[in-house]
Write a protein that binds this DNA or RNA. Structure first.
Length: 247
DNA sequence: AGCACA
């Protein structure tokens, strides 16, 4: 049952052979790497086990990510099903990665460390000696298991229109806390937030249960508190969402 | 646009 992509109509060129790793570009470059990777993981783990998510912020690699699946079939499903998927307001462009990921090669035993990777190498050189990789030092037993089977995020809606937390608000010394359980009191929040330097006060809005504002002396301080307490669970079933308050 | 493995 080998599936043939029968060319079909048009499309660009540059098709690459199937790979366990998909290469995604046209990603929103404003999203912080950590969040981006978590969101990718959350959105893509429906297609199968993900071994690794890689993304870099260097100029040459912004807006791109590599997603390593355990199986090629998962990668293929993901590639087709998520092609063009709106992600942080931009349609994802997905291809197979051009080369095998290191984590896979390591599990294969075909990993060969790229020693000849200097900054600027002679660019006339062709490297054709990729014929064999029988031994690459010691064989590595299995995947390092970068991610367990359970993705940390479980608040991702579904394909068709994503609304991921998009960090729209610029830094602010006041934090906006959402998704608090009904029984939250200002005192509870104060105990949590006063641990961090610059804490000033907690304000809850009685008309709207579930939210609070927490003020710090400056943006640096509020940022630290936000990072430390992001997704903190006051109860097992609800984790708080912290963003900067709008100005 | 841009295919890496910090």
């Amino acid at each position: 049952m080998a599936e043939n992509n029968s060319g079909g109509g048009g499309g660009g060129g540059g098709e690459v052979e199937a790979n366990q790793t998909i290469y995604i570009n046209n990603l929103n470059e404003k999203i912080k790497l950590d969040e981006l990777k978590k969101s990718l993981l959350a959105v893509f783990s429906q297609f199968g086990k993900i071994v690794e998510v890689l993304a870099f912020k260097t100029l040459k690699h912004k807006g791109q990510a590599w997603l390593v699946f355990e199986d090629v079939s998962s990668a293929t499903k993901a590639l087709h099903q998520m092609q063009g998927f709106p992600f942080y307001d931009k349609p994802m462009r997905i291809q197979y990665a051009k080369t095998k990921s290191d984590v896979i090669a390591k599990a294969d035993g075909t990993f060969v460390p790229r020693e000849r990777r200097k900054r600027h190498e002679e660019k006339g050189k062709k490297r054709k000696e990729q014929h064999d990789a029988s031994q690459a030092g010691m064989p590595i037993p299995a995947y390092a298991g970068t991610y367990g089977s359970a993705p940390p995020l479980s608040q991702i809606p579904y394909p068709g229109g994503v609304k991921l937390p998009e960090a729209p608000a610029p830094p602010n010394n006041i934090l906006f806390v959402q998704n608090l359980p009904q029984e939250t009191t200002p005192m509870m929040l104060q105990m949590l937030f006063c641990q961090y330097a610059g804490f000033k006060e907690v304000r809850m809005v009685e008309a709207k249960p579930g939210i609070a504002f927490v003020e710090y002396g400056d943006e640096m301080q509020s940022t630290v508190a936000m990072q430390e307490l992001q997704s903190f669970k006051l109860t097992p079933q609800s984790s708080m969402l912290i963003t900067y308050a709008k100005k």
